[in-house]
């Protein structure tokens, strides 16, 4: 079948050629239209601007691939940042403050899974509830004000550079590699795909579905927390209003990157590419001094286009 070869020898990995192609075409177009686009400094800027959404999107990829949905990562991101800030302000050393932030994310993610598994209420509703609960918690913990005065070590995570490359970019790259390894090479990844593909089948063959869901949502919570910490470190403050709307951007990145919104298919490398597509669009349009409102229009169009291309392809396969 023509479509088999069309995936460019990447069949086993499940990475789609389309999203990579879109990214390259887009980058080429930007390179022509915006003279500065291809400079090394600017490309690093693109990655830096994408890092927070990208890290969130990696966690979301796992949940979506497993047939779930997490609308709460934008709010969880804020709580984690605030929890870290409060912990540091209260005198804890910075590593413990960081751990507090991550633990908050993990706990809230786990709460999502616990409610979903025990109550049978759909993930859409449960995580929509968490979106509100976590935002409220962030405001409560911070008294509604940004927390300043983070330690130098924490700020380094957002503003430092290693070998000339900003720390958030390193973390984005590292978590992408780790995530891709997890989803494509481990039994955890295989079981996640099976769960999202056909929950009954996964149950019949003896996969511990409840435990798996707990791990997926907890992972999304941890990744959201990591994103929140990077964000706070970059802007010098743990802001309780950080990350509003990021949950949808994260889902958009994952879906543009080829993750099936209804589960059973997803790659972290795809999500990385999806996030970059959004970053390149924004950056390129900025360089061309296009009014920022157009960026949102463009991203929306790319999302629909990506899923449409995907549907056309899968229709050709049968």
């Amino acid at each position: 079948m023509a479509t088999v070869s069309k995936t460019l020898g990447l069949v086993g990995t499940g990475i789609r050629r389309e999203s990579l192609l879109v990214l390259l075409v887009l980058a080429a177009a930007m390179a022509i239209l915006a003279p500065n686009f291809l400079s090394l400094g600017n490309l690093i800027n693109v990655l830096l601007a994408t890092a927070v959404i990208g890290v969130l999107a990696i966690g979301v990829t796992f949940v979506l691939t497993g047939g779930g949905l997490d609308l709460s990562v934008g709010s969880v991101m804020a709580v984690a940042g605030v929890a870290m800030g409060v912990a540091y302000q209260s005198g804890l050393p910075w590593p413990l403050a960081l751990s507090t932030g991550l633990a908050f994310g993990a706990f809230l993610g786990w709460c999502n899974a616990a409610v979903i598994v025990r109550s049978g209420v759909p993930p859409f509703i449960v995580t929509l509830g968490m979106l509100s609960v976590a935002r409220g918690l962030a405001l409560l913990l911070s008294d509604g004000r940004p927390i300043y005065g983070l330690s130098q070590e924490i700020l380094f995570l957002g503003q430092g550079r290693v070998l000339g490359i900003p720390t958030p970019v390193w973390i984005f790259l590292l978590t992408t590699i780790l995530g891709q390894f997890l989803i494509s090479r481990t039994r955890f990844g295989y079981h996640t795909l099976a769960l999202g593909d056909n929950e009954t089948a996964a149950r019949v063959v003896g996969i511990a579905i409840e435990a798996l869901k707990a791990r997926l949502y907890t992972l999304a919570g941890v990744m959201a927390a990591l994103g929140g910490i990077l964000f706070a470190a970059r802007v010098n403050a743990a802001d309780p209003t950080a990350g509003i709307g990021y949950e949808l951007l994260a889902i958009t990145a994952a879906v543009i990157g080829g993750t099936n919104l209804f589960g059973g298919r997803g790659t972290v490398v795809g999500t990385f590419i999806g996030a970059l597509i959004m970053g390149v669009l924004q950056n390129g349009l900025n360089l061309m001094a296009v009014q920022p409102f157009y960026q949102q229009i463009a991203i929306g169009a790319v999302l629909v286009l990506a899923v449409w291309l995907d549907r056309m392809q899968s229709r050709n396969q049968t």
Binding site: D197, V205, G206
Partner: peptide, 14 residues
């Protein structure tokens, strides 16, 4: 069957 997964993955599912 998990229909988006390949043949080998389905035979050894879980």
């Amino acid at each position: 069957l998990a229909k988006q997964q390949d043949v080998a993955a389905n035979i050894f599912l879980g």
